[in-house]
Design a protein around this nucleic acid. Structure first.
Length: 560
RNA sequence: GGACCCGUGGCUUAGCCAGGAUAUAGCACCGGGCUUCUAACCCGGGGGUCGCGGGUUCGAAUCCCGCCGGGUCCGCCA
């Protein structure tokens, strides 16, 4: 809804500038629009015009102000505040927001692109750890945001089945017994054991090399072994993701692109660029002209393909099957993804939009699956659930064990997701148990709780038919309506910029606005007309909170 | 050594890409609020050289340059 108000303001400003004969420089936000505490929307366009017009910003703003048309739909008034132009929403807008927020179909945007989002794609050599889930949570939240914005999204997991690490898993399975624990954890044990064994036994490395070669050659026995190991590990990973409300729509195995010949075709096409040469037995692509010192190896000396080559084929496929493709990658992939994009450019393939997130490390240093140095996502979820259980039990001692368990589970999964998504992706973080288990701070439970409060009010009331939105005039009521209105703006921005943490911030602000309304505007005890109007607002806020939580992948609990 | 990211109250953090009107929240700390729709809440208070130094600009947390500190990468690994 905010976007409608903003369009109107843009129109007003443009026509005023036209009348004055002013033309601000083209570009993003050329009208200098900004959210501000001073108004519902402000423009500082006068500052931009001042150097060209050789007049004071205040004088220019005055002229523009005079020229603004007086026919408003959602604008109440335009105030001149020195060099600033302040735009305010009118009652009709607030009422329209409220009415729209009461409809179920009002929460999806108008984007309609087909988007492929690749996220998680962790190697099937062990369980997800607290670093991987940053990828999963950012990825899944973006999937939800893009869908909310109106896009049709395919969430994909790219399965690295051909790499050295998977060969090591197969070797590990040959040498060691798979424990009867959760599949991905069992795989990690043999993988770690095989790596350890390799330190003293070089034959292990040769075995892995042989697995790589035989798998690429399509040897039936090795293929069966690899596929069963991969499926086993992925099964466990899926279970973990499910605990966080995350799932993928499709899986693509890198071997697909070798088997169908597209990897070979990509190499052939790159050879025609004249930038490819054999060097010390391997086939290499020289990207020096594009700012990359390191050559990109396309084929090993023994003829087998490499991750990057297979990834080129996968990306070509993704580009051909979507309007936008988005990759979620850890900071360690920055350089390679840069090379990948250049190589795709050479092939005339649309490049992916890459979301890079910085590392999650442990207080003792960085994590490593191979060395067995990590905190698994399962372990984190178990601990957070335990903590959540205590919190629920203390608050709802009379509820059934099933209720407590269910709430604890949803609070825990939400808490983990929110903790991850609230921090901007380009901030490196250090995992901290104390912080992860702290529910006192502002986090998912805070937002879930606001939603539960709204639900509680609605449970105790009857469905209202009519209400007078005009009665909602207190500061807190108006502020809440305005915050609800911002939903479309936030989704639009997050979907364009691929920054899910904007939505996390919004969720917190929305919950805060609701809590103030809850505190200062009694609903059920209000007298008739006011009660109905407040009930409508409570319902609208409930819808906004629910939709926001769902888009964050956090359960919108109705009671907790 | 080169490339990229980060540096905002004691701790965590928004704002930075598209420069504008008193710099955002939380935690911790101090003080207040439950016979009232769930107190996982709300209110008040103290606490900030926006890493440092230059520059651009009417105006810089935001843009540019240099430096310092931290992270990541620079494999015929993924």
């Amino acid at each position: 809804m905010f976007l409608d108000f903003m369009s109107e303001v843009e129109g007003l400003l443009k026509s005023a500038l036209d009348r004055c004969g002013f033309a601000p420089e083209e570009g993003i936000n050329s009208l200098g629009l900004d959210l501000t505490p001073h108004a519902d929307l402000a423009s500082s366009v006068a500052f931009r015009l001042a150097p060209v017009l050789k007049k004071s910003p205040a004088a220019i703003a005055g002229e523009i102000h005079q020229a603004i048309p007086h026919e408003f739909r959602y604008v109440e008034k335009v105030e001149l505040a020195g060099p600033y132009l302040n735009f305010f929403m009118n009652r009709a807008f607030l009422n329209a927001v409220l009415n729209q927020a009461l409809a179920d179909n009002a929460w999806t945007g108008r984007m309609n692109e087909k988007v492929i989002v690749e996220h998680t794609s962790a190697n099937p050599d062990g369980p997800l750890h607290v670093g991987h889930i940053r990828n999963s949570v950012i990825g899944d939240t973006l999937v939800r945001i893009l869908r909310r914005a109106g896009c049709s999204v395919d969430a994909q997991y790219y399965v690295n089945d051909m790499g050295r690490q998977e060969a090591m898993v197969v070797v590990g399975c040959d040498h060691f017994h798979l424990d009867s624990i959760k599949a991905d954890h069992a795989i990690a044990r043999v993988y770690i054991a095989a790596n350890k064994e390799m330190e003293s036994n070089p034959a292990i490395r040769e075995e892995a090399d042989r697995v790589i070669q035989l798998y690429e050659a399509g040897d039936p026995d090795v293929t069966a072994k690899v596929q069963s190991a991969v499926r086993y590990a992925i099964g466990g990973i899926e279970q973990t993701l499910q605990r966080m409300n995350i799932s993928h729509d499709s899986y693509h195995w890198e071997s697909e692109f070798v088997r169908d010949g597209s990897v070979a075709e990509i190499v052939e096409r790159l050879e025609k660029t004249g930038l490819v040469a054999w060097d010390e037995g391997s086939l290499q692509l020289d990207l020096n002209d594009y700012g990359f010192e390191k050559k990109m190896v396309l084929k090993r000396a023994n003829g087998t393909s490499l991750y990057i080559t297979r990834d080129l084929a996968y990306h070509r496929w993704k580009s051909a099957n979507s309007d936008r493709s988005v990759d979620i990658l850890g900071a360690d992939h920055k350089l390679v993804s840069g090379q990948l994009r250049v190589a795709l450019g050479l092939l005339g393939v649309r490049e992916p939009e890459v979301v890079i997130f910085e590392f999650v490390s442990l207080p003792t240093g960085s994590m490593s699956t191979r060395k067995g140095k990590f905190i698994s996502a399962d372990e984190l979820l178990d601990e957070v659930e335990k903590q959540a259980m205590e919190e629920v039990r203390a608050r709802r001692p009379d509820e059934s064990p099933e209720f407590l368990k269910d709430v604890a589970r949803q609070v825990a999964s939400g808490a983990v997701r929110y903790d991850v998504v609230k921090v901007s992706a380009d901030k490196a973080t250090t995992f901290d148990w104390k912080q992860a288990l702290d529910f006192e701070k502002l986090s998912a439970p805070f937002i879930q709780y606001s939603h539960a409060r709204a639900c509680s009010i609605l449970r105790k009331s009857e469905q209202i038919e009519k209400f007078q939105a005009d009665l909602l005039v207190s500061d807190y009521e108006v502020a809440l309506i305005k915050k609800i209105a911002q939903f479309d703006l936030i989704i639009d921005r997050a979907a364009r910029e691929l920054k899910p943490h904007h939505l996390a911030t919004y969720a917190r602000e929305l919950a805060e606005s609701f809590n103030l309304f809850y505190r200062y505007s009694p609903v059920l005890d209000a007298s008739s007309e006011l009660r109905d109007a407040r009930l409508a607002l409570a319902r609208a806020a409930r819808n906004a909170l629910r939709t926001t939580l769902e888009t964050l992948g956090i359960s919108a609990l109705e009671t907790m």
